[in-house]
Nucleic acid binder design. Structure first.
Lengths: 185, 185
DNA sequence: TCCGATCGTTCGCCTTGACGAACAATGTCC
DNA sequence: GGACATTGTTCGTCAAGGCGAACGATCGGA
């Protein structure tokens, strides 16, 4: 399995990187994680396929989430101007959601810029279980949150709510803007 | 190890939950993940400690990141009004960063609301390796990005850049606001 | 110099993760 | 009814993950 080999190689590099970052010796990290030095040595050289318990113990000792040990690299500077970018959810002229940063492999969030006009409330069906949404108003006012209990927000106000229940975004003033972080926990 | 037992119990529940979510039988999921039925049966009943390869194969077959199989629950609706919330980095009157949502266990991002006035540029030292920052301007204008190449942004403009190099945020107009997502990849 | 501590690597051994097979239960079709 | 397919559980077997021990290399102190 080629993907498996790549995973183990990435894991090995990640463990070494994080260990360097926190400045621990192999011996000390193994001690803190409660695993054998030889086990850690094998893992760092790409010669292992650790159990989830071993992986968890290492992540805890390194002070990082497991995902940080098994995720790929990262990109560079990117700019998207106002009015530009892939618009999604724009079947109505009074609400536009622009995807600024989609969920890269292994990550768990999408970032949207919202531009809305007063009109019919934008109601969203429940997203995947475990989805949380964070909304911050930039300008204007809007009614935001779960359909059964939306909250009126103004500039600078923030709300977080479960995105896996029906929820709503309704602009109360012209040219209302917001940022929404849709997070898969 | 009590924590280990909790981890395995959580994993078992997560696998069952996700399998139900995608509507696969135990037999079909095992087939798609390329593991033995008996292995999956053991895992779902909390009687296993799978290798990272097995875990990865399952996550891929379920269409979720591994972290979703080993992370704890989630919270509810929360509102932070403009002007409220824990202000960080406010040793200068012309720049205030309000932490809206800190990094919960297993997650990898912090969410800030920025309120800034023109003045000396706010320069940040490099954060931890692998940090990416996303900035969206709500109001006003600002120079944002890596110290060696900041970009001028206006309302609705967006930029993402590596947060593990020296970077800057300099308001160019009074009452400039922004949202910053600091992400640990 | 020698000694002790620490480092990372390699080795042999043992336990357990993962395998395929067998099994009982259920559902569908002829 | 019987035949077949699918379901999830249990079992015995084997290879590998993880263990402790041994080893050589390095460093600091007497």
């Amino acid at each position: 399995m080629d993907t498996s080999a790549a995973l183990i190689t990435l894991l090995a590099a990640s463990i070494r990187r994080e260990r360097d970052r926190v400045g621990l010796s192999l011996t000390e990290l193994a001690k803190r994680a409660g695993i054998a030095k030889s086990t850690l040595s094998q893992l760092e050289s790409g010669g292992g396929n650790p159990s989830v318990e071993t992986l968890w113990a290492l992540a805890v000792a390194l002070g990082v989430p497991i995902s940080r040990l098994i995720d790929p690299p990262r990109p560079h500077v990117r700019v998207i101007r106002a009015g530009e970018g892939p618009v999604t959810h724009s079947e109505r002229a009074d609400y536009a959601a622009t995807l600024l940063a989609s969920c890269p492999p292994g990550a768990r969030r999408d970032l949207f810029r919202i531009d809305a006009e007063p009109g019919e409330a934008r109601t969203s069906d429940p997203h995947n279980p475990g989805t949380m949404e964070h909304a911050i108003i930039g300008r204007g006012r809007a009614l935001v949150g779960p359909t059964e209990g939306p909250v009126e927000l103004g500039p600078g106000d923030y709300i977080t709510y479960p995105g896996d229940v029906p929820h709503v975004f309704r602009a109360l003033e012209p040219q209302t803007t917001a940022v929404i972080v849709m997070e898969h926990v």
